[in-house]
Design a protein around this nucleic acid. Structure first.
Lengths: 219, 219
DNA sequence: ACGGCGCTGGCAACTTGTTGCCAACCGCCC
DNA sequence: GGGCGGTTGGCAACAAGTTGCCAGCGCCGT
């Protein structure tokens, strides 16, 4: 057994960025997870940082970003992700679970977001090998079953506004007749909606549609 | 910014147990996650440990255990979980995702399983506040959407052996006619299976059944 | 106003799914 | 063998879902 100086705490994105920017500059394997774009990802657009990233060719670095599906409901955020993917060749996946903000560099260093204190979020920087491994394993477990952004995007964007309530009614097991009445639609039109929904989900039966919808976190 | 001696590594369950047993004895909030019962949970049945746990009254301690659904497919393991729940008043939930072996004590100390080296698994013990917080947040995120064992159990146990292939066929969007042929069943019988399945899932429509099945990780 | 375009919803024909009924069948125990 | 409980699967009646067709309506732009 041994003990090492392995965890460093920084407060606020500014400090985090200042301390780790040089690491991002050389890292060849970056993995990160977040519920939203509110924090370090925003700071990422700092001029210096942007410059730094711009200098790197896609292919130099393996970028994996894992976001929560709810994020996609915001068109601006969604566009931002797509841009990230196109400009930096980032692999972006979407999960339906909540996830703590996490960054892993080259499987050798972990940054975990802590809580807010005095308006600034604290971050733990971990370099201890076994701990990094543990966190990496947690990340991989979340990454593997997550859906590719491109897939998720095309499937969802249309659907969510196409059939917001239809999904609810279906998942409540309401019969078409009653569902149509609820939505003040003709049965024909309601069923048209269901058909469009199934089409968008690539489902051939309602059972399949249900499974897919749940899979995508729509219900 | 400050740096602390925050991570301790131990090798093998024996050492882990020796080092942390006293902590389990006094902890009032224990959270753990695992894919299987193969490791520390087995060691848990050590005589000393059993003795130690037996002395504590349920209610003294909040025990949360998160396991992977695949575990339930093994009847022995399933029974073990149920016993754990009944004897120690543990809250047990099931998730469909893989999850790294993790133990959190009183939200103040984290044990993360590392990899195997020389036949012994290594464990990182973390006490650093922010890091523990980060891991706790990850755990909570996994815990929240997970299903209560009791619920999961009654729903699943029967189903899995009731309708293993039926689920597959349904989720492939195969029509009853074809599905029945595939299983060399009469259409009537196949539909009987589907009905039983839906009943077990508490679903009133196939859409609902699909969503539930996906929710429970059955498809 | 007029025509085009898109969405709506009634109708109808058809498919698929849901259920009760019952005869046939199988394994088992007496 | 004969009775018994459980499963099977054909039949049928009915409910639910799927689709094409088409008339009606509102919203443009000309």
């Amino acid at each position: 057994m041994h003990t090492g100086e392995a965890v460093t705490i920084v407060h606020g994105e500014q400090e985090l960025l200042a301390r780790t920017m040089h690491l991002f500059a050389t890292a060849t394997d970056v993995a990160c997870a977040a519920d939203d774009l509110a924090t370090w990802a925003t700071a990422q657009s700092t001029d210096e940082f942007a410059e730094l990233v711009r200098d790197r060719h896609p292919g130099d670095v393996r970028l994996r970003k894992l976001y929560r599906s709810a994020l996609l409901l915001d068109p601006v955020a969604a566009q931002r992700l797509a841009r990230d993917r196109d400009r930096h060749g980032a692999h972006i996946r979407i999960t339906t679970d909540e996830i703590n903000e996490t960054i892993i560099l080259d499987r050798r260093l972990v940054i975990l977001a802590g809580d807010l204190s005095g308006g600034r979020r604290s971050y733990s920087i971990i370099t201890q090998r076994e701990a990094v491994q543990g966190v990496t394993s947690l990340f991989d477990a979340a990454w593997r079953p997550a859906t590719e952004l491109a897939v998720y995007d095309t499937q969802i964007a249309e659907i969510r506004q196409l059939a917001p309530q239809v999904l609810d009614l279906l998942s409540q097991g309401v019969k078409d007749e009653a569902a149509a009445r609820t939505l003040r639609l003709g049965v024909r039109t309601y069923r048209r909606r269901v058909a469009e929904l199934m089409d968008a989900l690539g489902a051939e039966s309602r059972f399949q549609a249900g499974a897919r919808a749940r899979e995508l976190g729509l219900v």
